[in-house]
Simulated assay, not measured.
Amino acid sequence: MTDTPTPAVGQIWQDNDPRAYGRRLLIVELDATHAVVELHQPRRPTSSAKPGRRTRIRLDRFRPTSTGYRYVATAP
């Protein structure tokens, strides 16, 4: 089993929520308690969310649970 890395700028994470299946987020900023992320890939082509949209997510949600996020890769 692969360990989940500590969130860092430049990483891509995927939403585990089945309602947002396939949605990927790029971490662009970090502070002590939150990550600022950009929508890297919308959950589906018909989604109204635009790539590049930013939001803040608590760092403790970056873990592979049903309501969290799973690490995918480091952005090129």
Score class of each variant (00 low, 15 high):
residue 32 A to G: 05
residue 42 P to C: 13
residue 13 W to C: 11
residue 12 I to D: 08
residue 11 Q to I: 05
residue 7 P to H: 07
residue 54 R to P: 09
residue 39 L to E: 04
residue 34 H to E: 10
residue 11 Q to N: 02
residue 60 D to P: 09
residue 10 G to M: 03
residue 31 D to V: 05
residue 44 R to E: 07
residue 21 Y to F: 05
residue 40 H to N: 01
residue 35 A to Y: 11
residue 43 R to I: 00
residue 20 A to R: 13
residue 7 P to V: 00
residue 32 A to L: 07
residue 13 W to Q: 12
residue 57 I to K: 09
residue 42 P to H: 13
residue 4 T to Q: 13
residue 5 P to I: 05
residue 30 L to N: 06
residue 31 D to K: 11
residue 70 R to N: 09
residue 4 T to A: 06
residue 43 R to C: 12
residue 63 R to D: 02
residue 8 A to S: 13
residue 16 N to Q: 15
residue 18 P to V: 13
residue 54 R to T: 15
residue 22 G to M: 04
residue 33 T to H: 06
residue 68 G to F: 02
residue 9 V to R: 04
residue 65 T to L: 00
residue 50 K to L: 09
residue 50 K to R: 12
residue 52 G to E: 03
residue 75 A to G: 03
residue 45 P to T: 04
residue 60 D to E: 12
residue 43 R to A: 14
residue 25 L to S: 10
residue 64 P to H: 11
residue 65 T to N: 02
residue 58 R to E: 06
residue 75 A to F: 11
residue 36 V to G: 01
residue 25 L to M: 12
residue 31 D to Q: 08
residue 42 P to G: 06
residue 70 R to F: 08
residue 27 I to V: 15
residue 62 F to L: 10
residue 3 D to P: 12
residue 52 G to T: 06
residue 31 D to N: 15
residue 39 L to T: 14
residue 1 M to H: 14
residue 29 E to Q: 10
residue 1 M to C: 15
residue 46 T to A: 08
residue 11 Q to G: 03
residue 70 R to C: 02
residue 68 G to R: 12
residue 57 I to R: 05
residue 73 A to Q: 15
residue 7 P to F: 01
residue 47 S to V: 01
residue 19 R to D: 11
residue 41 Q to C: 02
residue 25 L to E: 04
residue 40 H to F: 10
residue 31 D to R: 10
residue 52 G to I: 00
residue 45 P to D: 09
residue 31 D to Y: 03
residue 29 E to D: 03
residue 58 R to T: 08
residue 23 R to Y: 01
residue 63 R to E: 06
residue 60 D to L: 06
residue 76 P to T: 06
residue 33 T to F: 08
residue 66 S to W: 01
residue 43 R to F: 06
residue 8 A to G: 05
residue 16 N to C: 15
residue 76 P to K: 04
residue 19 R to A: 14
residue 16 N to E: 12
residue 61 R to W: 02
residue 73 A to I: 08
residue 2 T to V: 01
residue 30 L to V: 02
residue 7 P to A: 02
residue 35 A to S: 13
residue 5 P to N: 11
residue 61 R to K: 12
residue 5 P to K: 05
residue 35 A to K: 04
residue 16 N to K: 12
residue 45 P to V: 02
residue 60 D to W: 03
residue 57 I to V: 11
residue 57 I to L: 14
residue 68 G to V: 02
residue 27 I to F: 01
residue 24 R to E: 13
residue 40 H to L: 00
residue 69 Y to M: 15
residue 41 Q to N: 08
residue 10 G to D: 07
residue 68 G to M: 14
residue 9 V to D: 03
residue 28 V to H: 08
residue 51 P to N: 11
residue 65 T to S: 14
residue 28 V to C: 03
residue 13 W to L: 05
residue 12 I to Y: 09
residue 71 Y to D: 12
residue 9 V to M: 02
residue 14 Q to I: 10
residue 43 R to D: 12
residue 71 Y to I: 09
residue 55 T to Y: 04
residue 4 T to S: 10
residue 44 R to L: 03
residue 76 P to C: 00
residue 42 P to A: 14
residue 43 R to Q: 10
residue 13 W to P: 13
residue 37 V to H: 03
residue 59 L to I: 05
residue 67 T to K: 11
residue 23 R to C: 06
residue 5 P to Q: 14
residue 69 Y to L: 14
residue 29 E to Y: 08
residue 31 D to W: 08
residue 47 S to R: 07
residue 18 P to N: 10
